[in-house]
Design a protein around this nucleic acid. Structure first.
Lengths: 164, 164
DNA sequence: GTCAGTGCAAACTTTTTGCAACTAC
DNA sequence: GTAGTTGCAAAAAGTTTGCACTGAC
């Protein structure tokens, strides 16, 4: 992404943040602005712990309590997404990024972003009765090619052991 | 389900359990047998805590450590499925139940079983390159009809407040 | 008899809560 | 000035680990 369009993204997300806060009679604090800046300075999935670390690096330490408070709000403002691929949450920025869903390997935990495709279109076209699908929160689990091969090998070996 | 077919299920899952344990040179313990019995005596999603409670009711208390150890093994044996709809795991029995995927409301947390349907078939037919989809671990998130309506009401109200 | 399995308690990780001090409005 | 926001520390919730004892094979 060019510096210029990255600057545009910062301006846009700050606008969204401030609109959201005003609409909900909440306050624009340095913490909130900096958290959003920091989130949008990084690509990909991250944990609260990582976000905390990034803020430390910026010399803008923010307590975990504040982070947990504010991610809730940012999710509601549609600036942040939270995913539970396992017992602890992973987050990712939302605004300005290509819409995608997630493909997860049940064995190695690999998470792959998949840009909206025929499957997404198909699911949206089905108008699941009464239920409004959010295609950004679609999760397809299975086995990645590496784990598929590894598992085949393992099964052949344990088969041999069992026969012996 | 009739008592008779329920008895068949018990026999089958015990067979699967014992085959799995033998194949992996592991031991058939009363705890493992009872845990499987208890899981298959209940329908729907449950937490480890609930499983622990059910075992207490049976006068067969099993420690949490043992439960955590054994669910791992039962998942590998395909007798149990684990889902992360939120920060803590939900489990459900697998064998003998109608195959289904899950539809989850992001707002109220409602989890709905959806029997394999056109969407599942479509995804399986796409043969995602190199990735082996497990349709039992497909998750579609969105808004249920109740929350969709509630959210519309809320937005109308906050709109009014904002204008005033 | 051996070694996997168990219970217990302690540790650990992640997230939530209570409260006093602070600050955006 | 007021009430929302923050940081800190404690607590809660969920899960993992270490170790001595037990019991399946």
């Amino acid at each position: 992404m060019s510096d210029e369009s990255q600057d545009n993204i910062y301006a846009e997300v700050h606008q969204i943040l401030e609109d959201y806060l005003h609409a909900h009679r909440l306050r624009v604090t340095p913490e909130r602005s900096t958290i959003v800046d920091t989130i949008y300075a990084h690509e990909g999935h991250f944990t609260i712990e990582m976000l905390h670390g990034w803020l430390m690096e910026r010399r803008f330490p923010v307590s975990m309590a504040t982070l947990y408070n504010n991610v809730e709000l940012l999710i509601d403002a549609k600036l942040l997404a939270r995913h539970y691929f396992g017992p602890s949450a992973l987050y990712e920025r939302v605004h300005g990024d290509e819409p995608h869903y997630h493909r997860v390997c049940k064995r190695c935990g690999m998470v792959q972003d998949v840009h909206f495709d025929a499957i997404t279109n198909y699911i949206m076209s089905k108008h699941i009765r009464g239920f409004l699908v959010d295609p950004s929160y679609l999760y397809v689990y299975g086995l990645c090619s590496k784990c598929k091969a590894a598992l085949r090998r393992k099964q052949r070996n344990s088969q041999k052991k069992y026969e012996s």
